[in-house]
Amino acid sequence: MPEQFLPTSVDQLPTRETTMSMSGLDFMQKILEGELPLAPIANGLNYQLQDVQLDQVIFRGAPGFEQMNPTGTIHGGWYGTLLDSAMACAIMTRVPKGSVYTTLEYKVNIIRPIRPGTSVDCIGVVEHAGRSTGVATGKIVGVEDGKLYATGSTTCIIMTPK
Results as ranks from 00 to 15, higher is better:
Leu36Ile: 09
His75Ala: 08
Pro40Gly: 04
Val135Ile: 15
Leu49Glu: 08
Ala39Thr: 12
Glu3Ile: 14
Leu49Gln: 03
Ile158His: 05
Pro70Gly: 10
Ser99Glu: 06
Leu82Gly: 04
Ile41Asn: 01
Lys162Glu: 10
Arg112Met: 07
Asp121Tyr: 15
Pro116Asn: 08
Gly146Ile: 00
Gly77Ile: 02
Tyr149Gln: 03
Pro40Ala: 01
Ile114Glu: 02
Gly138Pro: 03
Ile157Ala: 12
Ile157Val: 14
Glu33Ala: 15
Asn69Val: 06
Gly80His: 00
Gly130Asp: 07
Phe27Leu: 13
Pro14Ala: 11
Val100Glu: 05
Ile114Tyr: 06
Ala88Asn: 01
Arg16Pro: 12
Asn109Gly: 08
Val141Glu: 08
Pro116Leu: 04
Thr103Gly: 00
Val141Trp: 04
Phe65Pro: 15
Thr93Glu: 04
Lys30Glu: 15
Glu33Thr: 13
Pro63Tyr: 09
Ala129Asp: 07
Ala62Met: 04
Ala86Lys: 09
Cys122Arg: 05
Thr93Asp: 07
Thr8Asn: 12
Gly76Ser: 03
Ser153Trp: 01
Pro2Val: 14
Ser153Ile: 00
Ala88Cys: 09
Phe27Arg: 07
Asp145Arg: 07
Ala136Ser: 15
Gly146Leu: 08
Gly44Ala: 12
Ile91Gly: 04
Val125Pro: 00
Ser132Leu: 05
Leu45Met: 13
Leu49Thr: 04
Asp51Phe: 03
Gly24Met: 06
Pro7Gln: 07
Tyr79Gln: 02
Gln29Met: 14
Val141Asn: 06
Gln4Thr: 10
Leu36Asp: 02
Lys30Asn: 15
Glu127Asn: 09
Asn109Val: 12
Ser85Glu: 03
Glu127Trp: 00
Gly152Ile: 11
Cys89Ser: 11
Cys122Glu: 04
Leu6Lys: 14
Phe27Ser: 06
Val126Phe: 08
Ala150Glu: 11
Pro2Asn: 13
Ser23Gln: 11
Glu3Thr: 15
Pro40Cys: 04
Arg112His: 07
Val120Glu: 05
Arg115Pro: 03
Asp84Lys: 11
Pro14Glu: 09
Asn46Ala: 15
Val95Gln: 00
Asp51Cys: 11
Ser132Cys: 01
Glu105Leu: 10
Pro7Asp: 07
Thr19Glu: 13
Gly142Pro: 11
Glu105Gly: 12
Gly146Pro: 01
Ala90Pro: 05
Asp121Phe: 15
Asn69Ala: 01
Thr155Tyr: 10
Gly34Leu: 06
Tyr149Ala: 05
